[in-house]
Design a protein around this nucleic acid. Structure first.
Lengths: 273, 273
DNA sequence: ATCGTAATTCCATATTCTGAAATTTTCAAG
DNA sequence: CTTGAAAATTTCAGAATATGGAATTACGAT
């Protein structure tokens, strides 16, 4: 679980600490954590941690678990998160595509986006076949570089940025089937040429994932569409069909999104056509 | 939109300001807001607002909208919010009930919970009939006291607390079909006796909502189950059936939740039976 | 009932955050 | 292409805020 770097900003130490607490609580899961655990985990004085946690509690971002001395993330955070999801408009624009792909293929379809050093599951749609995945529910996240969607996104990020991310995530990779930074770098090179990412059981045995990046007119990358299925279901012939399907839907999505985003993009190299 | 009070806590002004900015951005919706707007809205010096926003941006809680000078809530917040939803375990425990109720009735079913002064939609399930509602999507919220779910929750909160909430929300009520604090107080009294809340088109013309509180063994209130339908579909005979159905499902939910929560509840008056 | 641990409060102090001012960037209009 | 006004960003000395050690209280295990 790579944590976002905190060092650069000045003048907001308290804020950094509070967010650190929220992130740790997020990792803690359903049972939450004790204040002292959080204080330890974030290297804070108990008194400081207590003050921050109390404040977050007053705002509803954290709540106490009745009958225990533990706290967990609160519903106000949940509500804010829901607004964040709507806010991007990205999900709304892509949802019809997810529905169509799931209906046509019968497989699970995911909409993934980048958040810092991670790949976040923004939306998902189940087809007839439901299988195990790493990010699971909407809102789940894994380090960028793990999984085909994250690799597809990395591949089309500016090279320097991609390398920085991979370096930052390197230690986190080990937890995923002994992935290494070099593996990711190699994979990304292929993906850049192919235009899509295919994981044929490398990440989860027996599960194949096909991801295609959603690129915008200004060459930035909005996210990726992913189809997951059991490897047995992905025969070479089917792959072609799926790629076409993905391409078609991404064209639709670009039509919906670009008018928003492109308004006077940076006066840089604009890809011809 | 009542904002949570901020005054009491000491030693976290910066945090309060940051959360205020997040809340305002949440209200801003898909197009986000300018920094200067946020600074104004939160009564902050531009420089201070800038510092806070930048920090939140570094953590991914806020993101810039490409090609504009606007910012919106970020995906990291979305991810945190998703963890908050899972974290309560409440949703997971109740979801099967939602599915059963939606299947049996064909109507829309909601799981609502309290967050500060608001009622939050924690989960929802569509039946055959889909209709307009106020909280809409999961994560949506309205002031406690508006809508049958919020009233059901208020009715079984400690009286002093309920009154404080109603007083705090009084001005916010006006926006909802000219509701008044007195209306809410009167309604709550009825609900306490009946054991459920029925809105027969008072809030949204032509839409009826039936809500029943989910109370725990320690007399605290976890939330409410709500069924929404067009008023035409709610005939007196049907009401009985729906009430039974809700009661049955809430019994199931209590069985799932209580083991967790009750661990040594406060040694206070435990309602007999 | 007793003790060790965790939570909470208190408060003088240092540190962090503040906000006015200066600088740079952006954008609309001429 | 200029120009100018508004927004964003940076800087910095000073002031208010957050800090964390110590004291106190609450909890829960034995």
């Amino acid at each position: 679980m790579p944590k976002a770097k905190t060092d650069k900003t000045t003048g907001t130490q308290l804020l950094d600490r509070a967010i650190s607490i929220l992130n740790h609580l997020g990792d803690a899961g359903a049972d939450g954590a004790r204040m002292s655990e959080l204080a330890d985990a974030c290297s804070l004085n108990a008194s400081t941690a207590h003050r921050i946690i109390s404040s977050l509690e007053n705002h509803g971002l954290i709540e106490r678990i009745a009958g225990t001395r533990r706290v967990r993330l609160g519903l106000a955070l949940f509500a804010l998160g829901a607004k964040a999801a709507d806010g991007t408009g990205f999900r709304r624009a892509c949802h019809p595509s997810l529905l169509r792909i799931a209906a046509e293929t019968g497989d699970m379809v995911f909409l993934m986006a980048r958040s810092g050093f991670n790949t976040v599951c923004v939306d998902r749609q189940e087809g007839a076949y439901v299988i195990e995945t790493l990010t699971g529910q909407v809102g789940g996240q894994i380090p960028l570089g793990v999984g085909s969607a994250g690799q597809a996104i990395l591949a089309f990020l500016p090279e320097a940025e991609a390398e920085a991310i991979i370096a930052a995530n390197a230690t986190a990779y080990k937890a995923f089937n002994q992935l290494s930074a070099d593996d990711v770098l190699a994979r990304i090179k292929e993906i850049r040429e192919l235009g899509y990412a295919l994981d044929h059981g490398q990440l989860i045995e027996g599960i194949s994932a096909l991801a295609m990046p959603i690129r915008l007119n200004d060459a930035s990358i909005a996210g990726a569409l992913t189809i997951n299925m059991t490897s047995a279901r992905l025969k070479p012939k089917r792959l072609e069909g799926l790629l076409e399907l993905l391409q078609r839907e991404i064209a639709v999505i670009r039509g919906l999104i670009n008018p928003y985003e492109v308004r006077a993009a940076k006066p840089q190299a604009r890809p011809a056509g």
